[in-house]
Nucleic acid binder design. Structure first.
Length: 865
DNA sequence: CGGATCGAC
DNA sequence: CTATGTCGATCCG
């Protein structure tokens, strides 16, 4: 809001409490002076758990400062000189890169929530009010501020400061509406303006200024809102003149000293003709115009800052609030003058703690920040001291980059003490439910779940867990969160966990980049697999029929669009590591367009009728003009040898990538089967697979896998599926090193797949061999077989899986890092496999946990591993 | 990566 | 009685 929370105790050395008071009391007639305010706050606070915790936090900051001071003592003049040289070298660079050509505006609505409430309820005008609740205030009007009532202050304390204070409950819907009205105006000056919350925004009006030069006057002319019921008297013929003198404001009386710039602004700027105002073409005039229009439209006032970059603009808007504006002219000296005596606390990004630390070094103003640049470079991290340097030079972003994708989503709740595990779990579930709902609204899935707890002593703890596949539903999130909660409950047992807040957060979403890849790969595999998936949805008809039907359907765009859309929804959980590793194979595939794909289908039909096929299992040519015959052969191949063989391969070749791939696939697959338990009974599975018999083309095969996977998402699965996938896995990942993965990206390597095709038919009863323990499992039921495999996996091979995972991920990381010049020795790659590096936990624990909770339908993603 | 902390609204 | 909720960034281990 408007810096109300910035109640720095700049004059106090150690005041935990004074921080909560204010230091700019204007000592109005009805107000309280600083001393009184602090005394009242102290009385209300002392001895509370909250206060004790504040003391503790303060101690911690003091310790940090002490540590820093010790570090400082050890610095030699030699080191300092060297640092000075280095930093100054950078200063020269920075100075050269200084860009004063942009005009950035920061708009800040004055006491926004309070102002809205006053506008809508005239009774509140003239009264001290605050918006919020007895436990927390969001903002207060300027009347209330004189009593020390501020944002981020609990209402009950505010009441003691100002017994007449009216506390209005929050009404975000209303604020949102008003905010939208304001934004409509702002968009006219910069369509790409950047809102920061409901009451603030940055604008880049550089372009607008240029265009505006050529604007005729009537385009810069605005009328007073004569319909306004408040503020402006529509019968006042002198209204315009008054406005220009700053005597009229349509906004409710917010402030006593509602003065300054608007007077001068409009006197000098707006040329009044009857009931209209004409604004000039300068930046200041533009901003006056914006503020005028905001006021006319919403009856609310705004403050504004104009400067060459966002940081300065923000500080400018603070300068003459409320209802004022300030501009730093685009000259280096003007910038430095502005900063000279500016307290660092006014700088966005410098908060309570940083202020205190810098103060310990004798730094209070920005110019002091500059003077101590060498010392700072030795005491703070590179990021920090460079930021300090930017600040002290008045450098900041000169353009408004729209904020990227969200990185996390969370929900938390404060309540009166809850100390029974039962209540805590149900609360946790409730939070997960709410969060899941929000996640699904935005179609997000994340891999990291964080539980936040605040105990009754206000101590905050967070516990996070990263799982291999993304989660988004209530059950998925809760599955992770409840374990975290259980650990915390156990950790204090036999005492109850006494908490006053619980929160759940999900993070680790796919990045924009990864999403794009994902989109492409999904689209591509859908294209390559669409025939098949179509077939699978009509299992009761003959294959020939399906082909015919399919080729017709190929031309019905909408059908596939629908399918594709549905599938993309189902497949949004591709994990980044996997996508990154395998994507390149897809890129090539995705280059095929729709028409080409359709032609392929036609070829396919022809070939089925009159060509000789090579069985993808035994690699022998099969002359059969009859699909069923071919399928029978292949099925026999699969059942006869392949299952067992591949099991052997996997078992003996456990150091290859194929092993974990397979294992992971198994895990996922088991979950899938369990999910589709009911569908299992369906019996026959009319599945199809296109196989390339002549080349070992990974791309083609990968596409096939994907289509298989895709199909499985909806269809009952059976042994053929497993066997086939085992087979294809083997083709996909044979003898492939990570080096290969990196180098297979170029387009030329790709050769189109042939049109061979084969169909598999499922059979019912059979003996299955567990690929893990290699023992025969007599079962007619795939689900129980899978359960066995799952248990085996969890028991025995977790470690192996983890190791392999590490290896694979590493190769992706190096692939990535190569583009940016590689990782330096100490640097950890950011793509460390999740679950392999848990604090205190063994890797096997975390993976096993994951494996067990894998009821996920995220089958696709496993193939990327 | 996981946890704590800072800072902003 | 009664001290928020949500998000991104950074630092440290």
């Amino acid at each position: 809001m408007d810096n109300m929370q910035k109640v720095a105790n700049s004059s106090c050395n150690d005041g935990v409490l004074l921080r909560m008071g204010l230091n700019d009391n204007k000592a109005g007639m009805q107000g309280l002076d600083k001393e009184k305010i602090n005394k009242i706050i102290m009385e209300a606070t002392k001895g509370s758990r909250f206060y004790e915790n504040e003391l503790k936090k303060d101690q911690q900051v003091n310790q940090r400062i002490e540590k820093m001071m010790q570090l400082k003592e050890k610095i030699t003049t030699q080191q300092l000189l060297k640092a000075q040289l280095q930093v100054d070298k950078l200063v020269i660079e920075l100075e050269q890169s200084r860009n004063l050509s942009s005009t950035i505006v920061h708009i800040d609505m004055d006491a926004f929530y309070a102002a809205v409430e006053m506008r809508d309820n005239p009774e509140l005008k003239e009264k001290p009010i605050a918006v919020g609740s007895m436990s927390m205030l969001s903002t207060s009007n300027y009347h209330a501020r004189r009593f020390g009532v501020r944002a981020a202050m609990p209402g009950f304390i505010a009441k003691r400061l100002c017994p007449h204070l009216t506390i209005v409950p929050l009404n975000f819907e209303k604020y949102g509406k008003v905010s939208k009205e304001v934004r409509e105006i702002l968009a006219e000056y910069d369509p790409n303006f950047m809102p920061m919350g409901l009451d603030e925004a940055y604008l880049n009006i550089t372009e607008h200024l240029e265009e505006r030069l050529n604007w005729p006057e009537d385009r810069r002319k605005f009328f007073f809102n004569t319909e306004s019921t408040t503020g402006i008297d529509k019968n006042d013929t002198n209204m315009c003149a008054k406005f220009n003198k700053g005597e009229v404001s349509s906004s409710p009386v917010l402030f006593e000293d509602n003065t300054s710039l608007m007077d001068d602004d409009l006197k000098q700027g707006g040329l009044s003709v009857e009931n209209s105002v004409v604004f000039g073409t300068s930046a200041e005039e533009v901003v006056k115009e914006i503020r005028f229009r905001i006021e006319q439209k919403t009856q609310l006032t705004a403050s504004a800052g104009i400067a060459p970059n966002t940081m300065l603009a923000k500080m400018c808007s603070d300068r003459n609030k409320p209802n004022g504006q300030y501009r730093i002219s685009p000259e280096r000296q003007a910038v430095l003058d502005f900063l000279k005596d500016l307290p660092i606390r006014k700088v966005p990004g410098i908060g309570k703690v940083t202020e205190k630390m810098l103060k310990a070094l004798g730094i209070v103003t920005c110019s002091e920040l500059y003077q101590q640049r060498a010392l700072l470079s030795l005491l703070f991290s590179e990021i920090s001291w460079r930021n300090f340097l930017d600040i002290s030079l008045g450098l900041g972003s000169t353009h408004l980059e729209k904020d990227g994708e969200r990185k996390s989503m969370s929900t938390e709740r404060t309540f009166s003490e809850i100390n029974t595990a039962e209540d805590q779990y149900s609360l946790c579930r409730e939070l997960c439910r709410d969060l899941a709902q929000e996640l699904q609204k935005e179609g997000l899935k994340g891999k990291t779940v964080t539980l936040k707890l605040k105990n009754v002593n206000f101590e905050v703890k967070t516990r996070a867990s990263t799982v291999l596949s993304s989660v988004s539903t209530e059950e998925e999130v809760f599955a992770v969160a409840k374990d975290l909660l259980a650990t915390e409950i156990d950790s204090v047992a036999p005492h109850p966990l006494r908490i006053r807040l619980m929160g759940v957060r999900v993070s680790g979403f796919l990045t924009e980049e990864e999403k794009k890849y994902q989109q492409k790969s999904i689209t591509s595999f859908l294209k390559s697999g669409k025939e098949i998936s179509f077939l699978r949805h009509q299992p009761q008809k003959s294959n020939q029929e399906y082909f015919t039907k399919n080729s017709e359907a190929s031309h019905r765009q909408s059908f596939f669009d629908q399918k594709r859309a549905a599938r993309q929804l189902d497949s949004e959980n591709l994990s980044p590591n996997e996508t990154r590793g395998k994507q390149p194979f897809h890129d090539r595939k995705s280059s095929a367009n729709f028409v080409e794909e359709t032609e392929e289908v036609t070829d396919l039909q022809n070939s089925i009728v009159c060509k000789i096929f090579t069985c993808p299992v035994c690699f022998e040519e099969q002359s059969s003009n009859n699909l069923e015959g071919l399928n029978r052969h292949i099925d026999e191949c699969l059942n006869g040898m392949l299952v067992k063989d591949t099991v052997e391969i996997f078992k003996n070749d456990s150091s290859r990538e194929s092993t974990p791939n397979f294992l992971q696939f198994k895990n996922e697959y088991v979950g899938e089967c369990q999910k589709n338990k009911t569908d299992q009974l369906a019996g026959l599975d009319q599945s199809a697979s296109v196989s390339d018999s002549s080349t070992n083309n990974s791309t083609e095969k990968f596409g096939q896998i994907m289509s298989e996977k895709s199909s499985r998402e909806r269809q009952p699965s059976n042994l053929s599926d497993i066997a086939r996938n085992v087979c294809i896995e083997q083709c996909l990942f044979p003898r492939r090193t990570s080096q290969d993965n990196e180098d297979h990206f170029d387009e030329t390597e790709h050769t189109e797949g042939t049109s061979s095709s084969c169909f598999f038919e499922a059979k019912e009863d059979r003996v299955l061999v567990c690929p893990v323990c290699n023992s025969e499992q007599k079962t007619t039921n795939l689900v129980s077989f899978n359960r066995h495999v799952d248990i085996c996996l969890n028991k025995g091979l977790i470690q192996e899986l983890t190791e392999k995972n590490k290896f694979l991920t590493k190769s992706y990381s190096t692939e990535n890092s190569r583009k940016v010049g590689g990782l330096s020795k100490g640097q950890q790659c950011t793509n460390v496999p999740q679950g392999t590096k848990r604090c205190g936990q063994t890797a096997s624990q975390s993976v096993s946990k994951k494996a067990k909770s894998t009821n996920s339908k995220h089958t696709i993603e496993m193939f990327f591993k």
